[in-house]
């Protein structure tokens, strides 16, 4: 069972990498138009469930609990001090390992 799940995940990840490479290779207009079709169709079918707020909240409660537990564990996590020369996005640094450039 676990091996099946791992195999399926490996296959999915291969597809995700393949898809990401395709997205990087085409203009934004191209991938985003295709994505819009998929998102609209997903939202249309989700809306067909016609759940009320209470039923919906019951339906997502399991997922919410899982995330809440993961987040509760994060409350104890301390970030190391940010050193003065650390590459920080908000510093507006460009180049080097901070990365400024084009993904195309």
């Amino acid at each position: 069972m676990e091996l099946d799940r791992e195999r399926r995940l490996r296959e999915r990840l291969e597809f995700v990498r393949f898809y990401a490479r395709w997205v990087k290779s085409v203009p934004n207009e191209v991938w985003s138009k295709q994505q819009a079709v998929l998102i609209e169709s997903f939202l249309d079918s989700a809306r067909n469930f016609a759940l009320g707020p209470d039923e919906y909240l019951r339906m997502v409660s399991f997922r919410e609990r899982r995330v809440a537990e993961a987040e509760a564990r994060l409350k104890g996590v301390r970030l190391p001090e940010e050193s003065a020369n650390e590459c920080s996005r908000s510093s507006g640094s460009q180049g080097g390992s901070c990365g400024a450039g084009q993904a195309a």
Partner: peptide
């Protein structure tokens, strides 16, 4: 994909916005 990523700004121009966006 055309992205410009500089510091705290990431430009993603020309995206056809979907309903979620």
């Amino acid at each position: 994909m055309e992205i410009t990523y500089r510091g705290d700004r990431l430009e993603l121009k020309g995206k056809a916005l979907n309903h979620m966006d």
